[in-house]
Amino acid sequence: MNKFITKYKEINKDYELLVILAKRDISVRYKQTFLGIAWAIIRPMATMLVFLFAFKNVANIKDFSGYPIQLVIFAGILFWNYFANGFQSISQSILINGNLISKVYFPRLIICISSLAVTLVDLLVGLIVYMILLIGLDQTITETIFLLPLALLVTTLFSLGMGLIFASFAVKYRDLLQAIPLIVQYGFFVTPIVYTSSEFMGKSWYPIYIWLNPLASFVEFFRFCLIPNYPIYSLNGLFVAIFVSILTFFLGLWIFDVKEDSFVDHL
Rank of each mutant, 00 (worst) to 15 (best):
M1S: 13
F4V: 15
I5W: 12
K7D: 15
Y8V: 11
I11Y: 07
I11G: 10
I11R: 06
E16V: 13
L17H: 07
L18Y: 14
V19Y: 12
I20H: 11
L21Y: 05
A22W: 02
R24Q: 13
D25V: 03
V28M: 11
Q32V: 06
T33C: 10
F34D: 06
L35K: 05
G36E: 09
A38K: 06
W39T: 07
W39L: 07
W39C: 04
W39S: 03
A40E: 01
I41M: 11
P44L: 06
A46N: 09
T47H: 07
V50N: 09
A54M: 15
K56T: 12
N57L: 12
V58F: 13
A59R: 12
A59M: 15
A59N: 09
N60T: 12
I61R: 05
K62P: 01
D63T: 15
D63Q: 13
F64D: 05
G66V: 11
P68S: 13
I69S: 11
I73R: 02
F74Q: 02
A75K: 00
I77G: 03
L78A: 08
N81K: 10
Y82G: 10
Y82W: 14
F83K: 04
S91G: 11
I94F: 10
N97H: 11
N99G: 15
I101P: 02
S102H: 08
V104S: 11
P107S: 13
R108F: 12
S114V: 08
S114A: 15
L116S: 12
L120D: 03
V125R: 01
V125W: 04
G126F: 02
L127E: 03
V129Y: 09
Y130G: 00
Y130I: 01
I132K: 09
L134F: 08
L134C: 08
L134W: 06
L137E: 07
L137A: 04
I141G: 07
T142N: 11
T144L: 08
A151H: 09
L153V: 14
T156M: 12
F158R: 02
F158N: 06
L160W: 04
M162D: 02
I165H: 00
R174Y: 08
R174N: 11
D175M: 06
D175G: 07
D175E: 12
L177E: 12
A179D: 05
P181M: 12
Q185M: 11
F188R: 01
F188C: 02
F189C: 08
P192S: 09
I193P: 02
I193D: 00
S198K: 14
K203S: 15
S204K: 14
W205R: 05
Y209G: 00
L212V: 10
N213G: 01
L215Y: 05
V219A: 00
F221N: 00
F221C: 00
C225D: 04
L226M: 09
I227D: 00
N229C: 04
P231F: 07
I232V: 08
Y233C: 02
S234N: 04
L235F: 13
F239N: 10
V240Q: 03
A241M: 02
I242E: 09
F243S: 14
F243N: 08
F243D: 06
I246T: 09
F249S: 02
W254V: 02
F256N: 01
D257A: 14
K259V: 05
D261V: 13
S262L: 12
V264D: 01
H266P: 05
